[in-house]
Design a protein around this nucleic acid. Structure first.
Length: 741
RNA sequence: GCCGCUGUAGCUCAGUGGUAGAGCACUCCCUUGGUAAGGGAGAGGUCAUGGGUUCAAGUCCCAUCAGCGGCUCCA
């Protein structure tokens, strides 16, 4: 006689064991009709289950329902529908492409679902199949076949899967059973599969299957569920795109075809989603960047290398000026360093071995190369001699870091080492050398060295993406050389900078990750007390930002904890922008010191910080954030003067002059077009202010103002007042276009 | 790097084996106008690159390069 607790706290006792569907029916016929599944808590935490789940003991139950007309679906409802839609799509694909397509893994995702499938040699799923698949999906939904769950004991279940010859499902089943082995104290037995493998499994283990219709006749799939009661409850579903994946995400494992799909409660919502995707595409920084001529990537220059065109350069420069001004207020000093450094430098810093795979090849001096060639040095040998380190460096590294060891085979006598340069992958070694170039007293600390430093990394070609993932980028970098006591206030300073700048730009949608050390690992450098203090400082600073933040144990670098800022792009992909990292290692490697009040040398702690990551990525994200409609202070062109006709050209140029004198970026549209066309072009180019000038305006030294985003003439105002207004808006870096007649 | 798709004028794209196309942008001419495209003419192409098949290749095949979507990676 189960007692059931409902979400509103009501308790209901029932005479017999019953299903979740019956519970729903007992509450009301409307609820029963709308029910898709149930969130049931048998005392082990709430779990999303089928409506057919038998309630045979006390439980808390919340019925998951399809959304009412016009309301948004709950996450649980979408999960059920999309998980179910994955089955329907898989059936449709097998109908269209062939039964020999093997199903592997098909979970719901944030925006839909996918199903990984093995497609046999000689066959493929292509976008040409999409129409047929979508048609079949719609048919199956219309047939409204029940999702029928049936369970089999481990042995017959494994035999069934074995007979079907789908190793992926077999593997899934084994994993499910292994979990049961672990959680069940019952004695294990073994089963031998057709390929000879013997696997342990609990004798009373159970696997569940779902038939879309009648078990044994209709399409079925090994699946833990849960599902909606029948295909008709899915609403609207469709296949979206194709991608590649690997079995278990392992590059060395089988290659699978990942078919993405999505489902919504109604066709209208699905259409709205598709529409939203189209809109998002228009916000894509790669599209806007091209339309507004903000940046260019040229095949001949190289992939992943950004050419900042004049318009984009204005935006970057304005941001840099803004950031630099804030840094000055915080006591930073600016430095400049070259784009390359000796290999030796990176061997000392420890970057060289680590970055070996993600850097551009070293630059070896011509003379050194020629001499190597003369000695008959092979390519492989040369690489060895480039990558090798000296005895001195190897022992130095081992002594100080515990984390990184240079194996003996990489140690060579000094005269065998090949020297060269590396495009810098990071700015810190250069900055460390600047710090080391002069003596420092505790009275001068912290020393804050800032540079918009350009670095180069060899990213995998498939990973490059517009401005957000590139091979050469400029970090808004700085290194804070401070005493241990100064760490909290320095971190706080970094985060308040982020707050000021994100605030000015109106960016609210970001999150913060605090990378902490893994308590079970001893790879970390620095004392436990230092770590505790630094981690506490990171957490306190992150909390003070007032945006979502997460603790991520094990995500710290071996040399110190960190705070990362993450934003989403229009397609929903997350990008790490900036980072603030405490470093207990670098000062040791470079043997940095300052003189303390005790007149003895002390190690500084270094804080690396690039709160906006790189100018490239940050601008890419900003383009999407503003959809190209930048606030006036950032706009490449702030004001455009549109003469009604050539007769007003002279006055237009006077207006232009007045604005230029006030340091406003302004241009006259001197084209031989009617005013309508000029307005359209300026609007397309997202110029904040249009000044329409004709004889009427010239007569009264006025301008007719049109503001971006407002589709009408706002009337005229004296030129002087407009200049003052727009000047003030720019100086204050206002987010809104605020000048009005 | 791996899998799939794509590459035609500055941009967006049509062209599936038989003379390289459209719209926009550009240049010139007409139009001199009051708030989201006035009219006309012109110029602009090694159809990504290199091979191959064919009487004939933008079109079919192979390779390379680049872009896109994923996967993997990401101090």
């Amino acid at each position: 006689m189960p007692v059931i607790i409902l979400p509103n706290g009501d308790k209901k006792a029932f005479e017999w064991p019953l299903t979740a569907a019956e519970v729903a029916a007992s509450i009301g016929s409307g609820l029963a009709k709308a029910a898709l599944g149930a969130k049931i808590d048998f005392g082990e935490g709430p779990e999303l289950r089928d409506l057919s789940t038998l309630i045979d003991r006390d439980a808390s139950i919340a019925i998951v329902t399809a959304p009412r007309h016009g309301q948004a679906a709950s996450a649980d409802a979408l999960f059920l529908m999309r998980h179910s839609a994955a089955h329907v799509m898989a059936e449709a694909i097998q109908d269209v492409v062939g039964k020999d397509v093997l199903l592997a893994y098909g979970p719901p995702t944030e925006t839909g679902f996918f199903y990984d499938m093995f497609v046999p040699e000689g066959k493929k799923i292509s976008s040409d199949h999409f129409d047929a698949i979508n048609k079949r999906i719609a048919e199956i939904i219309k047939e409204d076949r029940p999702f029928a769950r049936f369970e089999l004991k481990a042995r017959p279940a494994m035999n069934k899967l074995d007979a079907e010859g789908n190793k992926y499902k077999k593997d899934n089943a084994l994993r499910a059973l292994q979990l049961q082995v672990r959680s069940s104290p019952s004695r294990d037995t073994f089963i031998t599969l057709s390929d000879g493998t013997r696997i342990p499994m609990p004798e009373d283990g159970v696997l569940s299957f779902y038939a879309t219709g009648t078990p044994g006749t209709d399409w079925e799939d090994l699946c833990r569920g849960p599902h909606v009661p029948s295909t008709g409850r899915i609403g609207a579903a469709r296949v979206m795109s194709l991608a590649a994946s690997y079995w278990h995400g392992d590059e060395n494992s089988d290659r699978l075809t990942r078919v993405y799909g999505t489902a919504f409660p109604t066709q209208q919502e699905l259409d709205a989603y598709l529409n939203q995707l189209e809109e998002a595409k228009k916000r894509d920084h790669r599209v806007i960047g091209k339309n507004l001529r903000l940046f260019h990537i040229d095949e001949d220059v190289g992939q992943g290398l950004i050419l900042w065109t004049p318009n984009g350069s204005v935006i970057r420069k304005e941001l840099q000026v803004f950031i630099a001004a804030e840094l000055k207020k915080q006591g930073y000093t600016e430095v400049f360093t070259p784009h390359i450094g000796r290999l030796e430098l990176y061997k000392t810093s420890g970057h060289f071995p680590y970055y070996k795979d993600s850097q551009f090849a070293p630059i070896i001096e011509r003379q050194a190369l020629e001499e190597l060639c003369k000695t008959g040095c092979s390519c492989a040998d040369m690489l060895n001699r480039v990558e090798a380190v000296s005895e001195r460096l190897a022992s130095g590294i081992n002594e100080r870091t515990r984390a990184q060891t240079i194996t003996p085979d990489r140690v060579r006598p000094d005269d065998e080492l090949v020297e060269g340069f590396m495009l810098k992958p990071m700015n810190c070694p250069h900055h460390a050398k600047i710090f080391a170039s002069a003596p420092h007293s505790y009275r001068d600390m912290p020393v804050r060295l800032a540079e918009f430093g350009t670095v180069y990394r060899w990213e995998q070609s498939g990973e490059l993406n517009g401005m957000t993932r590139v091979r050469g980028f400029t970090q808004d970098d700085a290194h804070l050389f401070c005493t241990e006591d100064q760490i909290p206030s320095e971190i706080q300073g970094c985060l308040s900078l982020v707050k000021i700048i994100f605030g000015t730009l109106g960016m609210k949608d970001y999150r913060v990750r605090v990378g902490l050390r893994d308590p079970d690992s001893n790879k970390y450098t620095g004392s436990a007390e230092s770590w505790d203090k630094a981690e506490a400082a990171c957490l306190a600073a992150a909390e003070s930002l007032g945006v979502p933040f997460s603790r991520e144990p094990g995500e710290a670098a071996f040399y110190g904890p960190k705070v990362d800022f993450v934003v989403k792009d229009v397609i929903g992909r997350e990008w790490q922008l900036g980072t603030v990292q405490v470093d207990y290692n670098m000062a040791n490697r470079f043997d940095l010191s300052y003189i303390g009040p005790d007149n003895r040398a002390h190690r500084p702690v270094v804080v690396h910080r690039a709160p906006f990551g790189s100018m490239e990525r940050f601008c890419g994200v900003l383009i999407e954030h503003f959809a190209g409609a930048f606030p006036t202070w950032l706009s490449p062109e702030q004001v455009r003067v549109l003469p009604i006709s050539d007769k007003s050209r002279g006055y237009a140029e006077k207006v232009e002059r007045a604005l230029m004198d006030a340091d406003v970026r302004v241009r006259v549209d001197g084209s031989n077009e009617r005013i309508q066309a000029k307005v359209k072009v300026a609007a397309d180019e997202k110029v904040p202010y249009m000044l329409i000038v004709g004889p009427r305006d010239a007569e009264s030294a006025a301008v007719s103002v049109r503001v971006r985003g407002i589709e009408k003439d706002l009337g005229s105002m004296p030129l002087g007042r407009f200049v003052d207004g727009v000047r003030g808006e720019i100086t204050e870096r206002r987010a809104e276009l605020s000048v009005r007649p």
